[in-house]
Amino acid sequence: MNICTTRLYIVPLDRITELKQVKLLPAKGGGGSYLSAIYRSPNTAGKEREINLSSSYGDPDALDEITEQISTAIDRPVRRPPPRFDY
């Protein structure tokens, strides 16, 4: 049996307000990081929505370079909350 585990989302660039990079420090889990795009949708009365772009297991800094490259390419800021433990 084949199961589709991926989806393609198309969001107009003008709706993307920022990127979000979360770093997870090793705890019960192995740590890592994930990168998402934050956007506003007219279908949700302008409420923020989030789409996962990439994730990495183990190294909290693994997505630093690609985050900066995407941020520069689309001219959007990056929200970086304080690192948290991977529970």
Rank of each mutant, 00 (worst) to 15 (best):
N2M: 14
I3W: 09
I3V: 14
C4F: 03
T6W: 08
T6M: 12
R7N: 12
R15C: 12
I16R: 00
I16F: 03
I16S: 02
I16N: 00
L24I: 05
L25C: 05
L25Q: 06
G29T: 09
G29I: 13
G29K: 10
G31S: 09
G32M: 00
S36W: 01
A37T: 00
A37C: 08
Y39N: 01
P42I: 12
P42N: 11
T44R: 10
T44S: 13
T44H: 08
A45S: 14
G46W: 04
G46D: 07
K47F: 07
K47I: 05
E48Y: 05
R49S: 03
E50Q: 15
I51W: 02
N52I: 13
S54L: 08
S55E: 07
Y57E: 09
G58R: 06
D59Y: 05
D59I: 04
P60M: 04
P60I: 01
D61I: 06
E65Y: 12
T67H: 01
E68Y: 07
E68I: 06
Q69R: 14
I70H: 03
T72F: 07
I74D: 13
R76A: 07
R76M: 08
R76E: 04
R76L: 11
V78R: 00
V78I: 15
R84F: 12
Y87I: 08
